[in-house]
Design a protein around this nucleic acid. Sequence first.
RNA 1: GCCGGGAUGAUGAAAUUGGUAGACAUAGGGGGCUUAAAACCCCCAGACGGCAACGUCGUGUGGGUUCGAUUCCCACUCCCGGCACCA
Length: 958
Amino acid sequence: MARESYDHQKVEAAAREKWAMLDIYRTDLNDSEKEPYYVLTEFPYPSGDLHIGHWYAFAVADIFARYHRLTGKNVLFPIGFDAFGLPAENAAIKRGLDPKKWTYDNMEHMRKQFSSMGNSFDWSKEVVTCDPNYYRWTQWLFSKLYEHDLVERKEAPVKWCPNDQTVLANEQVIDGCCERCGAEVEEKSLTQWFILITKYAKRLLDDLGGLPWREEIKDAQRAWIGESEGAKIFFQFSADLNEDAGVVEVFTTRPDTLFGATYVVIAPEHPLVDTLLPLTTNPQEVEAYRIATGRKTERERSENKEKTGVILKGVTALNPLTNIDIPVYVADYVLASYGTGAVMAVPAHDERDFEFAQKYNLPIKQVVVPQVTDLANPPQAGKEDTFRNIIIAIVHDPKTDTYLTLKWKTQPWTTFITGGIEDGEDPIEAAYREVREETGYTELKPVRVLGGITESRFYAAHKGVNRTVHATSVLFELMDASREAISEEESAQYDIAWLSKEEVVKAGLQHAEFDIIWQRLMTGMDAYTGSGILMDSGEFTGRPNQEAKWDIVAAAEGERVTQFRIRDWLVSRQRYWGCPIPVVYDPEGEPHLVPAEHLPWLLPSDVDFTALENTGGKSPLATSVELKERVERIFGEGWTPEYDTLDTFVDSSWYFLRYLDPKNEETFSNDARLKTWTPINYYLGGSEHTTMHLLYSRFFHKALHDLALVPTSEPFAHRNNRGIILGPDGQKMSKSKGNVLNPDDFVVKYGADSVRVYLAFIGPYNEPGQYPWNLDGVESMRRFLDRIVRVADKVSTVEATEETSRAMARAIEKVRTDIERLKLNTAISALMIALKEFETLEQVPQSAFRDFLILLAPFAPHLGEELWGKLATEDDEAQSVHAAAWPTVDEALLQASHATVIVQVNGKKRGEVSLPNDAIETEALAAAEEIPIIKELLAAGPAKKVIYVPGRILNLVI
RNA sequence: GCCGGGAUGAUGAAAUUGGUAGACAUAGGGGGCUUAAAACCCCCAGACGGCAACGUCGUGUGGGUUCGAUUCCCACUCCCGGCACCA
């Protein structure tokens, strides 16, 4: 402790007292003089204790906000609490506490902790989502969405956590388990409230293009929304059904393969299964399958990748273009919740269908032929085009794990065994014949045909013609190495060689289609999913599949559609501590919005958390007598309440709008301020919110924009994803690992400023990296601050030398540009370099040190304030360093008159010379020649070429 | 599997976007001050060779473009994140 040059506890307390007295962090939202700048951080859940993650999120964001304030902007840097949520309720259930009291006590505690960070939050605009004054407007906005058909109540299979006794959003299910408690999730069908985010899928996707966000944030959202271009195709059932039920609608992105659709698959949950069941001859079997899959959780379904299914015997569907009746299956590899819940299966061109078809012995019909051109011998113009059907025989010797190849004597290449197929000949027979003729091996077992045919085109030099070849590849296994003699004619042309896998790949066999065949051989996956030429496709045969795609849709009377992966947003929660859904039910059970004059629709307080088993999975609200009586009193006898509450993501989808007018009783925000203050300039947050919160907020904003409630269609101009702080062992901090660090310990020992500077120094703040906490790190930052205090003792009224002024000018520029880019680590390094400059001086010029303190203030606000006070500059109008103006820079100082120019010979550094900035090439060359080693190297003669980049480099090529 | 991002000393990282690789720190080594220690200050520090001046190699691996590549291009390996039976 002795080494410390200041008492951080005293300094920090004094600074906070001063700020409170001056009230400098209150933002005047109506100020029209200064440029408005809205810095937003994700508001915290009031869990009760601040951990290092909070410090990284809020203290470092504070640096950014303080910097912008110093540059003269009118900065809004608000804070609040995302105060509804499960932990409060768990505290109630497990420990009998009042969720409200628990939450408010935690918030009180956290406000104190926040103040210990030295944050410049404007608490006067605090927003608390569980405050009726806030959730009243959440309810009002929900009503607006409802009125504009963006809310729907529907029966849907939902994820049910048997432990928490609640429905979960898709996003809250991780690998089939509950995000919160880890219990295996079940499926259940319930009537739930949905917000129809899918109506905005296209716009949420398209508008990403214009946002200057990091690519990985945008990509994650794109993947989440998941757009697919495709078509709906209608397959008529053969069975006698009424018009509606007589058709199955499938969604496909590959309508070009319609001629290859050899069966249809329906998801087990598809309503058509009920309709078709009576018409099948195996209803028990189908029913049994449906029950079996229904019992499986999503996790079990995806874990067990082996495809299962059951045929609907007695029912077939008509392929609209081949006019062939094809079988209909029910299988759980088709998802009810995506597309139409039914697919046309094209096993030749879809891996999943292929796998299923293999297992159930279904026909595999190739309709797309991959096309390759031999680039070494491409077809030549003006030559005759000829066509051949061939086989490529691949013989594998399992004993040595090698493949039979021909090393040609007449040509510089190696091939598998190939040969023509005679008309009507079976490819396997043809392949067998060729192997026998060309190599003499006779003991071969055919294993499989590798997928369908491939087309290759080349110029056959020995014949002087262009060739188009359709090849069928056949795999054999060698049973016995015995051989017949082969003709001399054959053996004169090539030698036989058995090559290992690696040797085959290395040899680069002389087949244009080699890559396709080899991949099929190695993976066992014979479905061809790429592009090519259509075959066996009626009038479309011979056309490129991509080009014919939409013509085929038209011919099949299908419908071009775009599908999205994103599902509607399930917002019902069977929970107490959330925003009540402002809905009541009439005696017929029809839902009605609670009229605006009854908002806020208050959360009742008379719930019994001990009686949850009796609510049958309903929210604890079902135990409230007050709520029931309130509904009957206002709406009448027989009316009943909605017991569910809203997903907390609804609360947090608009909180940043409320900061602009948090106490407004008339409306949710303030029209004029929305115009000035949105979109938010910078939203600082964590990558865990990329797909949920960020997407929901964007949706909300767009919907409100369409309702003319907000002026912009996107809420956030800039967004960063900060990294995460790991434990000292490089692992994620967790109690079970015992590597959790308490920031308070460091704050007590070294002060909040040291912790702030350390967190900013650890790495760039705009990259989602992972930074292990270095136990010596905070102490080293404290050393840095101590050095500043020592330098402060040397401050005097001496004039700054040009050198000092130049050093400060560089620091000012670098700190400015680095903070703008959120590269706080290198900004601090610039401060350290400036400090070193001061340390070399006997006396530190006051003007320079004053500027330095302004640069330091965002990082170490308390110490900056303390030293600013000691400077005793009576002419300074700013009472606080945080109200000072960012120092201006004399541009001329940034331009050094001389620069070190590196002298290279043939790109290698051989020396350096100091040259005036405006030195021309001949001057540079002359200076370089003074260097002995250069002189020596140039002795043989002048440089052949000279590259001179003034101020940087002189490169001589000799 | 697909889509992103990344790989630089013992460690966190930097490099004005094609121009001195390793700034700034941490850990480490040496020295000063001190009776001693702490604190503080100074010096060294990518690897290899050499007493040294210096030389050779070096930004995951292999190739390429260029006078010059951490930076651009091609192929590959590994790590991190997201998505994943999405038809």
